[in-house]
């Protein structure tokens, strides 16, 4: 039965893709349920945590497999450079922050945007109230620790726009300097450090918090990327990956405790210090930044053109990119996210 049907389906699908003007080279390897699964690797931005719940769920619930993908999720972390790993073929797909991806692209790396998972910025700055941080103006001249790399431009642009000039220290991966009062304020992710502080016994009312998303600094975050060559050679795999990832997120949003179980399994396997209540907070916050509260805010999975322009402008101002880059030459999201 299976043997009889499959060649027929392959022929049909091949014909369909042909008519779409897809690449000849991948046309034959495009069945929805191929006899031999396509293997693919997806590198995440950090060590296992709820930030990646959707992909873990997609893997665990077989959303990749049912699309003919045998996906391996690679962990990120302080010792990994996603752009470098992508370029050098250590992974075919990766998650990247939009500013990181744009900077890399500006440096001539042929990376391609496939879909935008996180459309809301989760960046924030928290300051100690008891050290006099009550409003943005209070940050002027104060010691503030801010992440380096591609995280930095968003903050510097934010500070410039708000007209404050803090004394910036490079912040690493811990909030201990802030907890030890080595700085008056520091950068946090709404889904991570912001809640970590709470889990270190700091009450919300002890802090003054500035969410960058409240100050017209949209900065879309996690997106799915690959090299242009990969998309050229295996567009169906790209589409399936994006589709499966988004299905994973939708499932996670609807089955949060189950998704948490899956995340916690990954966390334990990776020997990552983390606890469930923190992961729950992270999952909830991630889902809020993937699925908009109002449909007018953004379209799920798609990079907002306006937010894109703003990010480009910010990076240009920071000197990280020199010339404008049209969205359509950077992204094939219309093809991947809306693919049937």
């Amino acid at each position: 039965m299976t043997r009889l049907v499959q060649p027929l389906r392959s022929v049909f699908l091949a014909g369909a893709l042909w008519s779409l003007g897809g690449s000849l080279a991948v046309g034959a390897a495009e069945p929805a349920v191929p006899s031999k699964p396509e293997s693919a690797t997806l590198m995440l931005l950090w060590t296992p945590q709820s930030q990646f719940a959707g992909y873990y769920v997609a893997l665990e619930k077989g959303f990749f497999r049912k699309r003919g993908l045998e996906v391996t999720l690679l962990r990120g972390g302080p010792d990994r450079d996603q752009v470098q790993d992508l370029k050098e073929g250590r992974t075919e797909f990766t998650l990247l922050w939009l500013p990181t991806a744009l900077s890399a692209r500006a440096q001539g790396e042929p990376i391609l945007h496939l879909g935008q998972v996180v459309n809301r910025s989760n960046l924030a700055i928290v300051g100690w109230k008891d050290r006099g941080v009550q409003s943005l103006k209070d940050l002027d001249g104060r010691r503030v620790s801010i992440w380096g790399g591609s995280f930095r431009p968003a903050f510097t642009t934010f500070f410039r726009a708000q007209g404050v000039k803090p004394d910036i220290l490079t912040q690493n991966f811990s909030i201990n300097l802030f907890l030890l009062r080595g700085v008056d304020a520091c950068s946090v992710m709404r889904y991570n450090e912001y809640h970590m502080l709470y889990q270190c016994g700091v009450e919300r009312h002890e802090l003054t918090t500035f969410f960058l998303s409240d100050y017209d600094c949209p900065l879309p975050e996690d997106g799915l990327y690959c090299m242009e060559k990969t998309f050229r050679e295996r567009p169906a795999v790209c589409r399936a990956l994006v589709e499966a990832s988004m299905e994973g997120w939708r499932y996670a949003a609807e089955h949060r405790e189950e998704a948490l179980d899956i995340v916690m399994k990954q966390v334990r396997q990776g020997h990552i210090p983390a606890n469930r209540s923190h992961m729950r907070w992270m999952l909830d916050t991630m889902i809020d930044s993937i699925f908009p509260a109002r449909p007018s805010d953004w379209q799920v999975g798609l990079l907002n053109r306006e937010a894109y322009q703003k990010t480009v402008a910010i990076l240009k101002q920071a000197g990280l990119i020199r010339k404008e880059l049209p969205l359509d030459s950077f992204s094939v999201q219309e093809d991947c996210v809306r693919a049937p």
């Binding site: 889990q199 270190c200 210090p273």
Partner: peptide, 12 residues
């Protein structure tokens, strides 16, 4: 050990 804080346990 290393995973939970007093506060995360309080929360959970």
């Amino acid at each position: 050990i290393m995973n939970e804080t007093v506060f995360s346990v309080a929360e959970e």
